[in-house]
Amino acid sequence: MDYPVDVAILISYFVLIGGLFLRIQVPLKQCLQSKQFGSTLFIVGAFVSFLFTWYYMISYFVHSYNESDRVATNEPVSLNSISHWLHNVSLFDDAWRTVSNGNIQWLWSQQICMFTVGVWTPFLAIEGARRRIPYLWAFMVLGQVVAISTASALFFAVVLAFPPTDLAGPSRRLATTLFICVVGGMITVVVSPFVAISEEFLPNLLVMHILLVIPLLPSKPAIYNYTQQSIYVVGIYMLSAGASLSICVRQWILCFVETGSIYGTLISMVDIFFAHPAQSSISADVAWVHILCMVWMIVDRLSKIKNGTAIPLPVLALFFLTPILTVSVTMPMYLAYSEFTAASSKHHTS
């Protein structure tokens, strides 16, 4: 084998995935032991989303291998031919350039980026601190190397199995760090399509991924006024929703100009979904994040209403608007609404 280091790097990628699943096995075991319908539902959702996204991910590996000009035509697949392929490609860089270069491509991809930066990162940090869930960073890294939909479904399941603690939450230092990292992450998302064909693309992408892990590193939960926490939580989620809406509207306008109509844009989105396996993997991840978050809105709300009360109209509105406004807009609005109603309830009962 001519390039053993390159093969070792690919193997280490799969070893990392296995290690991350082992790292989060303790909270996942608590999910299974709780035997809650919601937790079971999201674990099944994680498995199904994994199958969909990784079908396309493996297809991308095969596509990249077949397209490699350093692998001889009709050469039998061997460790040596795989080492030549890996030595002459950059799978991570090539995949993300593919899904970031082009208006329709970025219309798909910016959704998963903004969701991860502005919704999932604060949700992990805030709910993880309140519920004392261990290894939050592992859920984020798992999402980055496997699929955001798969990791978020697993975390939804864990959240349902870990009751919140009123006396715990993100410290003020963590809150500041989270705010800085979220804003910094949003900047990298905005920059991404403009550097998609330049040398600055990969460093910008790496900065994005690193910023999202920093607020999730182990820290001590703080004990302070719940109302103060709620004001901060509602603020960061509404900031995320506003930023996501502005980015999404701008991208839709660019796509309308390119295709000439809403119908043309929608048809192009379908075409682009299947145009390249790397794009298919990202787009499938986007689709499953939408589905899982819509399910979360209903499951979470049902767990909080009592005496057969109907699901509130704002929640139903956000549920049905998600496919239109995108999950990166409606999910933080739902989380802000949930936080506001919880804080109001505590205020009235205290």
Rank of each mutant, 00 (worst) to 15 (best):
T165I: 14
A138P: 06
C31K: 10
Y56F: 15
T121K: 03
I324F: 15
L318Y: 04
I236K: 06
T265L: 05
S59F: 03
H276M: 00
T73S: 04
V62D: 14
A151S: 15
W96T: 06
I262M: 13
I267Q: 05
V207F: 05
K306G: 06
F256C: 07
F179Q: 03
G143R: 04
A157R: 08
Q110T: 02
S198V: 00
R130S: 11
F47P: 03
M208G: 00
I210D: 01
S68Q: 00
I298R: 00
A336M: 05
L292H: 04
F52A: 15
V289Q: 04
V315G: 01
I82G: 05
N88A: 03
L245Y: 12
P4H: 07
E199A: 14
N103E: 13
M269S: 03
A275F: 00
I104W: 09
L206N: 01
S344W: 15
G45N: 13
Q33I: 02
I262H: 05
N225L: 10
T326P: 01
A241M: 13
D285G: 00
I43Y: 12
F14S: 03
C293L: 07
I305N: 00
F256A: 02
G264Q: 01
R172W: 10
H87L: 00
V289H: 02
C31N: 11
M114A: 07
A153W: 06
I253G: 01
I210F: 12
P4M: 12
S280C: 00
I214G: 06
P4S: 04
S246L: 15
T98H: 12
V329E: 04
W252L: 04
A168F: 13
F14V: 12
V195E: 04
S78Y: 10
G128Q: 11
N88V: 01
P312K: 09
W96S: 02
C248H: 14
L239Y: 15
I82W: 13
R172V: 11
T176E: 03
I43E: 04
R173W: 08
L79G: 15
G128H: 12
M331S: 03
R97A: 05
I231Y: 15
D271K: 09
Y237L: 07
A151H: 06
P312T: 07
C248R: 13
C181P: 00
C248K: 13
C31P: 01
K220M: 05
V71W: 09
A243Q: 09
E75H: 04
V315R: 00
L160S: 09
L91W: 07
F201M: 02
M333G: 01
W108F: 08
T121D: 02
G118Q: 00
T322G: 09
L318H: 08
C293F: 12
V5T: 12
P76N: 05
R130N: 11
V158T: 08
V119A: 12
L142I: 12
Q228E: 08
D300A: 13
L107F: 11
L79F: 14
A138K: 05
A157M: 03
N80S: 13
L211V: 06
T116K: 07
Y226K: 07
S246F: 14
I187N: 00
L10K: 07
L41G: 07
V15I: 15
V234T: 07
I112E: 08
A222M: 09
E200K: 09
A168T: 05
I43G: 06
Y337F: 14
